[in-house]
Design a protein around this nucleic acid. Structure first.
Lengths: 262, 262
DNA sequence: TACTATTGCGTCAAATATACGCACAAAACC
DNA sequence: GGTTTTGTGCGTATATTTGACGCAATAGTA
């Protein structure tokens, strides 16, 4: 059977080239029309959604594995990507039994017996990463296990398999906290943007509205933006200034804080 | 050979009952005489120090594994323990080659051939936890691989094996950040303490001095302390009030922030 | 009793956060 | 073509938080 053969090949490849017991999951945030989006995959022939994930090659750094997985899923590279938590509850993968999971994926027959290797006997410890990507530049790409890959509005995320809802919750909390001591937006917005667009991003992430005029002051006080020319407007309004992040200053703010230890 | 037999037994136990590729390391902070301490192990018959660590049982949650490891090392239970980062660089364990590491441990002969199993072929992904413990209540206990276990002043930590210096650095950064939005001290101080003692803890963690009077205001504003009677003093000075953390309020502050997602 | 180290509680100014006024530009409307 | 509408840029006034410091009270010690 074609499908079984392919599955077999994939599993053998994993056993040979990837670390056992370890996986990683990606909470990919995008931003579009004042909505925070997250990228989800739909299991083949099912209605169940999951976060995109990946595994770590034996000859590959953990962070590199995350970048590779993200690239495979979005076509984007060199993005903002950050580890936020590692999940390792015994029951984290048994939201459904393995049998039922395979059933839902239409793989019950094809996979019969294939998962019996000791390699697959236990749950994985999964390292959670969150990414901020420019919505407009991504080409969501489903993987072998999925036949759909699309953006979901953060407020409309359905009940996901495994502990993936919890993952999104924690990723968002980390992101919000980060917002209070570091700038955000470099990879979520296009190269140039207006102050209103940046404010909209902040409001979306924080889940509350901010005063336009105070936001201007705060952001400019960071001294991380470079003001460019004005943008001809679409609606009936004044032409707003365009801004761009000053890369060096941005990086500097991200890497602040050094400590003297040993 | 006695040693070889014991090693063999341990490795077999690990292969049978623990997850491959995953380990965990503990940065255990203690506090004593205005100094922040960290618990280190010394490798058997060597001068090399490392962080205490552990592995995850196949039937055990990740967090539970961390608590168990900590209990084995300090004799303490139900402490503040928090994951801060997961380390997975390919070269993170090859500070010395495996051969040299074994040599330094005086295990070269005893271990010959034992590590050749596929189980040990690759580096581990290690989940870092940091703990805050009451210095006075701990009984540092070396494990099988170590013959010494003691507290080190944070500023005097030597060059450790593997990526363990980096782990301490990151743990401390996480702890300092946490200080800015959550209370700290419940497990680092005895049941009752004076405001000056608490301030000294904060100063030690932050690595800078704070104004005594402003510190009072800030902490009391948290509304997390309960004031008890006065403590008869030792030196020639006024008797200070004793305080105790209000457990419910303390927990509440730790678990703050809830989000509405999916 | 005078002296000293430490403590509890206050004030005051600077910095920051928050609320809101208003004029201007560009398109839309009549 | 004047008026309205909408979003923008830049102010100012007011609260709130942060940081620096004064000072009297307490409990030992000389």
């Amino acid at each position: 059977m074609e499908l079984r053969g392919k599955l077999q090949e994939i599993l053998r490849d994993i056993e040979e080239n990837y670390l056992p017991s370890v996986s990683l999951d990606l909470v990919v945030f995008g931003f579009h029309e004042s909505q925070l989006k997250v990228l989800l995959l739909r299991f083949k022939d099912s209605n169940d959604w999951i976060l995109p994930g990946g595994r770590v090659r034996k000859d590959e750094n953990l962070d590199e594995a995350a970048y590779r997985s993200l690239r495979e899923r979005t076509g984007l590279d060199r993005l903002f990507l950050q580890q936020f938590h590692t999940f390792g509850n015994v029951n984290r993968m048994t939201y459904f039994s393995r049998e039922e999971t395979l059933e839902r994926m239409g793989l019950a027959e094809a996979a019969a017996g294939l998962w019996d290797s000791t390699y697959w006997a236990n749950r994985d410890i999964s390292v959670g990463y969150y990414a901020l990507v420019d919505f407009t530049g991504t080409v969501p790409t489903p993987d072998f296990m999925a036949d759909e890959c699309r953006w979901w509005d953060i407020a409309e995320v359905p009940h996901l398999l495994f502990d993936h809802n919890e993952m999104i919750r924690l990723a968002l909390r980390t992101l919000r906290r980060q917002l209070s001591y570091q700038p955000v937006g470099y990879n979520l917005l296009p190269e140039t943007f207006t102050m209103t667009e940046l404010q909209s991003l902040y409001e979306t992430i924080l889940g509350r509205s901010l005063d336009r005029r105070n936001f201007y002051k705060q952001i400019l006080h960071y001294d991380v933006l470079e003001r460019l020319g004005k943008r001809p407007t679409i609606p009936a309004s004044k032409a707003p200034y365009l801004y761009r992040f000053r890369k060096e200053r941005y990086e500097q703010l991200l890497n602040d804080e050094d400590l003297s230890v040993g």
